[in-house]
Design a protein around this nucleic acid. Structure first.
Length: 421
RNA sequence: GGAAGCGUGGCAGAGCGGCCGAAUGCAUCCGCCUUGAAAGCGGAAGACCCGCGAGGGUCCGGGGGUUCAAAUCCCUCCGCUUCCGCCA
């Protein structure tokens, strides 16, 4: 949820943000009037309650005729208070409704426009020249005995898979390397719940435009998380944190579940787009004024991981219209995929500023003892999708795959994967 | 799955339907004392909303109800604990 104070003081800022996203700026005016209505109904109910309280005390002290008279009057007032309170509740609900409809304020500098209006910030490494026709990750993975899609589909349906043998080892190695890097950088490593309550899913902003992406367990009123960002954002909900020593950083290792509802026919081959995958995710709680710098640090840690696995990649600044509702700014790292002759997203880091934390009620204590809403940020350290890029970029003509140096210690020193057939 | 109990401020823990935003202890902060500290003594200190302010209001797990008046009574949901059963 956006800051209502900003809205009142500078509605044009919010309108401009809406336009940058390609969303309706008139929602700003609905929110403004809902805010106005709520405030007037609150103060009306407040003063009536004050009067009722005063009368109630008199009743307690009085006796005889005086008491009878007061009681009658108090009874009348009680009914009026009840009306005023239900007005207030209605105004509250309206405000929340209007408030929810507005996504986070876009950070100054983010490109305007939609999905295709991203700005490429830089390229790192060069796509490799092959002197043979490169195979795609699935062909390689099957040759290595690393990926079994057929049986994944047999057991669970489309977009499911088994990682087998060296495939499973490769994933564990990759994620372990990510976990180790995170721990070394001062992150607290977390194994998180995969199922969360509705208010947590709601609070992280995934039940808005993206609710069809989310698996829901109706019998238990729980949601399967699509990223450990969700439980990590909920971790400190309703808390007041001490961030005087700087941002509090967590690295969540979890399985992620996504329905991929709107992507029929997209990336149907292999494990690029699947319903279930594992990921190590960075999550940071930080003072709002430090969020911008923290965002760049998260990006730097992502790039450190990418350099360790020796992948050519580019960094893009996502356009406003392609940000999630919670994000103010988002940078994606995209690795080169030889089989597709294109760059594909392998990491994504978002600065959610105070938007998520306001919903989840995560605050911090300022130096002068006041409270303030915290900022939250997240970023990918590694996911199973990286395996796609690693296999394709480091393949040899014979179908074997070179293991990048940094990853070898996590694979028992193995320097290459060789075909089983 | 069955049974019982519990949910109060950072923690622990009282609380007769009105005098309770709430005793008390610990922790915290500020003084005094001390060369410094500890102990001791004195004092301060919750969160949120409305308001320029004075001030007012809300919050005793969430929601609803009874009542002139609810932390206190009733209903409901959520969470936790213990016991039994079942399965690891």
């Amino acid at each position: 949820m956006i800051d209502l104070r900003t809205l009142r003081e500078n509605p044009d800022l919010v309108r401009a943000s809406q336009r940058a996203r390609g969303e309706d700026p008139s929602l700003v005016d609905s929110l403004l009037s809902a805010d106005e209505r709520r405030r007037s109904s609150v103060s009306r109910a407040d003063s009536m309650r004050a009067e009722q309280k005063r009368l109630g005390k008199l009743v307690g002290a009085a006796s005889g005729d005086e008491r009878t008279a007061l009681l009658a009057k108090a009874k009348e007032l009680a009914a009026e208070v009840k009306t005023a309170e239900s007005d207030q509740h209605a105004a509250d609900a309206e405000l929340v409704e209007a408030h929810r409809r507005i996504p986070n304020l876009v950070e100054d500098g983010a490109p305007h426009g939609g999905e295709d209006d991203y700005v490429v910030l830089k390229h790192v490494g060069k796509p490799r020249e092959f002197d043979f026709t490169p195979r795609d990750h699935l062909e390689l993975g099957e040759g290595l005995g690393a990926i079994d899609m057929e049986r994944g589909a047999k057991v669970s349906g489309s977009r499911f898979y088994f990682l087998t043998g060296v495939g499973a080892q490769l994933q564990i190695a990759l994620l372990s390397m990510a976990a180790q890097q995170a721990a070394a950088a001062g992150f607290t490593l977390m194994i998180t719940p995969s199922l969360v309550r509705p208010e947590i899913m709601e609070g992280t902003g995934f039940l808005g435009a993206h609710d069809s992406e989310v698996y829901r367990l109706r019998d238990d009123d729980l949601y399967l998380v699509g990223t450990s960002e969700v439980p990590l954002a909920g971790y400190h909900s309703d808390e007041i944190l001490d961030l005087s020593a700087g941002p509090r950083r967590y690295a969540g290792w979890s399985t992620c579940y996504r329905r991929e509802a709107g992507s029929y026919g997209k990336d149907t081959r292999g494990i690029i787009r699947v319903h279930q995958f594992d990921k190590v995710e960075m999550f940071s709680y930080c003072p709002p004024e430090q969020a911008h710098d923290e965002h760049l640090r998260l990006l730097a840690w992502e790039e450190e991981m990418l350099s360790k696995v020796e992948l050519p990649y580019r960094v893009i600044d996502t356009a406003a219209g392609d940000l999630g509702s919670s994000a103010a700014r988002k940078y994606d790292c995209e690795a080169w995929l030889p089989s597709q002759q294109s760059y594909r997203e392998v990491t994504s880091t978002s600065n959610c500023t105070t938007f998520q934390a306001r919903r989840l009620n995560v605050r911090l204590r300022t130096e002068d003892g006041r409270t303030q809403v915290a900022a939250t940020l997240n970023g990918t350290l590694a996911t199973m999708r990286w395996i796609v890029a690693i296999l394709e970029n480091h393949q040899e003509a014979d179908g074997s795959v070179r293991i990048p140096d940094a990853l070898r210690p996590f694979l028992g020193g193995k320097d290459r994967l060789v075909p089983v057939t």
